[in-house]
């Protein structure tokens, strides 16, 4: 295999970020632009001050040039995240969050800090949520077995972080668990 070892096990976080930046976000454009065709689709037209939906990568680009304001998605605010944090700490299961919330939140907080209310508070809430969820996936690790693992509402970044060793650990368990399947292979299987 030509890929370096570190890339064989799973996707890297920057790659996930790239995937997440295809998602649409609402912006308030400050410039006018005709409907324009890109490889991933046609976006626009931009008519200030009408809101428009464009992919995050494009919004980031415009934002860097100070040509738009980004409207944060409805889950990226203090009240919503506060409520999720309470759910996260009071209940055993993972709370429901957008699948790529970690990536989107980071991109928007990095680029459009001035469009988001109370960004520091949001950052610390996201960090708390992340830690609470990490503790839960650690509990999931204790329950791991060779055939299946169900951790509903886990998000892409979290799945990606635990994937390499969960997969390996389950592989090891498959080998050392004795059941009908391994027995049938018997000596030939060696």
């Amino acid at each position: 295999m030509a890929l370096p070892v570190s890339l064989r096990n799973s996707v890297t976080p920057p790659e996930l970020e790239l995937i997440a930046s295809e998602q649409l976000v609402e912006i308030v454009p400050l410039i006018a632009m005709e409907r324009t065709a890109f490889i991933s689709g046609a976006y626009g037209p931009l008519r200030p001050p009408t809101k428009a939906k464009i992919p995050i990568w494009m919004a980031m680009n415009l934002k860097f040039k100070k040509k738009c304001h980004i409207v944060p998605p409805d889950w990226l605010n203090v009240e919503f995240l506060q409520e999720r944090l309470i759910q996260e700490t009071s209940r055993p299961e993972f709370s429901q969050l957008p699948f790529r919330f970690a990536e989107v939140a980071k991109l928007l907080l990095d680029v459009a800090q001035d469009d988001i209310q109370n960004p520091d508070k949001i950052r610390s809430l996201l960090k708390d949520i992340r830690e609470a969820r990490q503790a839960k996936s650690r509990e999931g690790l204790q329950k791991i077995d060779h055939s299946e693992l169900s951790l509903p509402n886990l998000c892409s970044m979290e799945i990606n972080e635990i994937r390499p060793f969960f997969v390996r650990a389950m592989g090891v368990l498959t080998h050392i668990t004795r059941d009908a399947a391994t027995e049938a292979r018997g000596f030939d299987g060696l």
């Binding site: 096990n9 890297t12 976080p13 920057p14 680029v111 972080e161 994937r163 390499p164 060793f165 390996r168």
Partner: peptide
């Protein structure tokens, strides 16, 4: 081997969280 895998992926994720777009 598991130790190395977990360390590598935790490190990578941490790096990403700490990197900045700006």
């Amino acid at each position: 081997e598991l130790f190395a895998l977990a360390q590598e992926s935790a490190k990578r994720t941490k790096q990403w969280y700490e990197s900045s777009e700006k």
